[in-house]
Simulated assay, not measured.
Amino acid sequence: MRFAGIDIGSRSIEVVVVDAAGAIVNRAQTDTGFDPMAEAKRLLAAMRFDRIMATGYGRSLFELSFEAPTVTEIKAHARGVRQAFPEARTVLDIGGQDSKAIALQADGRVKKFEMNDRCAAGTGKFLEIMARTLGFGVAAFGREALATERDLTISSMCTVFAESEVTSLIAKGRDRREIARGLHLSVVRRAAGMLQRVSADGAVVFTGGVACNPCMRVLLERQLGREILVPEAPQFTGALGAALLAVEAAP
């Protein structure tokens, strides 16, 4: 049998298909778009599987549309992380619209977590808007920020006010790379605070689309003084976790 996990996020949808032993046999990703269920249906049409479990912010709508079981993002990421890093005790997931710090027990179950889902500050959306404001592509934003060792302090984490502050700094002729580094550091400090409140030591597994950003990884490691581990495809961690939980829930 094959088991699928689908993670319907605010910015993208990921699907992972595993076999009964938990080995990945297929995976795919698409933008969430204006009609998440239509995008999910299109993505799944190209997949072969017997059972599916959903996670992500759109999981409840998926449950109604496809009559499939669901799992919270916290549990899905915890399970996906355990597959890649069995000894992991701390997880940081930064996605498009929220961020989560998760502490795990020795058996991989969630011990404690903290979540920021009330504003875009400290999320992928924040970084995406700031990259656009500075004239950088999202994929290049982190690399450009790493190209300098200097950063400018960004006083506001509110997306609207930070965008205005960045625009003002550009008008004053400040270096765009230094502004970019300062913006990354402001997100890192917010994430570090969440992590310290749930787990004070040990390596941190970084998941979600923002984990693909090299500047975030480097600055997090320096800020925390802890090793940052990143799965091979961090944006698929939630979908993988949901697929593995579907395997374990099978009769």
Rank of each mutant, 00 (worst) to 15 (best):
162 A>K: 07
63 E>L: 02
15 V>H: 03
138 V>Q: 15
115 M>G: 05
23 A>D: 10
136 F>Q: 04
152 L>I: 09
68 A>T: 10
5 G>R: 04
11 R>F: 08
157 M>K: 13
232 E>S: 10
241 G>S: 08
208 G>C: 09
110 V>C: 12
59 R>T: 03
131 A>W: 04
140 A>F: 15
166 V>N: 06
83 Q>F: 08
185 L>E: 10
155 S>E: 14
34 F>M: 13
53 M>N: 12
151 D>Q: 14
137 G>D: 13
58 G>T: 08
249 A>S: 15
117 D>A: 13
29 Q>D: 10
11 R>E: 12
123 T>I: 02
51 R>W: 00
25 V>C: 08
172 K>G: 13
170 I>P: 09
109 R>S: 14
135 G>W: 03
169 L>W: 06
113 F>V: 07
105 Q>N: 11
216 M>K: 12
175 D>A: 12
193 G>A: 04
87 E>N: 12
136 F>R: 03
251 P>A: 14
200 A>W: 03
57 Y>G: 04
130 M>Q: 09
53 M>P: 09
49 F>D: 01
92 L>V: 06
222 R>W: 11
158 C>Q: 05
47 M>W: 00
71 V>G: 03
222 R>K: 15
17 V>P: 00
149 E>I: 07
222 R>I: 09
47 M>T: 01
35 D>S: 12
78 A>M: 03
166 V>E: 00
215 C>V: 04
95 G>A: 01
182 G>M: 04
139 A>P: 04
112 K>C: 06
196 Q>L: 07
201 D>G: 13
135 G>A: 12
30 T>N: 06
33 G>V: 05
32 T>R: 10
129 I>C: 05
2 R>G: 02
9 G>R: 04
199 S>Q: 08
244 L>R: 05
211 A>N: 07
55 T>V: 07
213 N>T: 06
41 K>T: 15
114 E>V: 06
168 S>T: 14
176 R>M: 02
8 I>S: 01
27 R>P: 00
121 A>R: 09
49 F>R: 05
23 A>F: 10
